[in-house]
Write a protein that binds this DNA or RNA. Structure first.
Ligand SMILES: [Mn+2]
Ligand SMILES: [Mn+2]
Ligand SMILES: [Mn+2]
Ligand SMILES: [Mn+2]
Lengths: 151, 151
DNA sequence: ACGACAATATAGCCATTGCTATATTCTTGT
DNA sequence: ACAAGAATATAGCAATGGCTATATTGTCGT
């Protein structure tokens, strides 16, 4: 509102503007990196499991079509996360491996934390797949502390 | 992998395929409704606070440009969440009000839960803005239980 | 009453993330 | 060796969510 009839001090529903702006900005940012994180994490897992990460396997795991994967892999290669040999599987660069490791650890902490709260493993897995990308370092630490306390 | 050299029973890094597919599907779904939820919630808050929700205020709060808001409002109107009078603020339909109420409550629970974990209010606010959209009913209940336990 | 200014509308651009359809290339079994 | 099938590449489309620039419309103060 440009002109507020009721002064802010009456504490309406509205939250501090600057914090909210920053929250939305941060969320938009996380949304932009979400897919990249899931891809490198999945690629790392596929390589760890079967020695290679092929487009068909990635597509199947993600539940999307193969050309969708092909396009994203090009982007990941352009951004230096993976290396692609035509008609071969993809491999992670050092940078890709780092991001994969960070993502995997964060993912695991979030999922474990949800399980520790008594949430069913299925739901924990589903929710963690989304939540992981929006958890800050501070929140991750809090999750870890909570897990340690129950350890 | 079409042909696995190591049988699944050796329990590699890879998680059950069907659950993972479903997790990614669910996450993509939540991502699609994320913005809509934030818009109606914000519109409800602006109306509660100042009696009206104008494009400029929405744009300012979200940290985006006014035409971005104008386009989204058309979509919200088309989907029956709001009513628009040209050159006037927007108003929520019954459907819009319902979604706003649900979103606001869920948002509040997530933020309170994070605070209860000892996370700073600033971080809790930022993280909750993203996390809220990926929290299932079951997880929300677990958060509520945890909050109740802390009295 | 009307000119300034504020708010909204519209046009046109771009990036992202999905899709289908189809062409190309690799691999494998006979 | 080579045909069939599997995997990858490419083309072209659509929806979404951003942006800037600009036109139109309301509102308010004098
Ligand atoms: Mn993940
Ligand atoms: Mn994920
Ligand atoms: Mn919200
Ligand atoms: Mn939000």
């Amino acid at each position: 509102m440009s002109i507020k009839p009721t002064p802010e001090t009456f504490q309406g529903v509205l939250v501090d503007a600057d914090t909210q702006i920053e929250s939305f900005r941060q969320t938009r940012n996380s949304r932009r990196t979400e897919l990249v994180e899931d891809y490198v994490e999945l690629i790392a897992d596929l390589i760890a499991d079967g020695g290679e990460a092929r487009q068909v396997d990635i597509a199947h795991r993600l539940g999307v079509a193969q050309p969708t994967v092909a396009k994203m892999l090009k982007r990941l290669a352009a951004e230096g996360f993976i290396q692609q040999k035509p008609y071969r599987g993809v491999f992670l660069t050092a940078r890709g491996n780092e991001l994969a490791a960070r993502s995997r650890e964060r993912h695991h902490i979030v999922e474990s934390f949800l399980c520790a709260l008594g949430i069913s493993p299925e739901t924990a897995r589903i929710d963690a797949e989304g939540i992981e990308h929006y958890v800050s370092a501070e929140t991750l630490e809090a999750f870890k502390s909570h897990l340690a306390k129950l350890g």
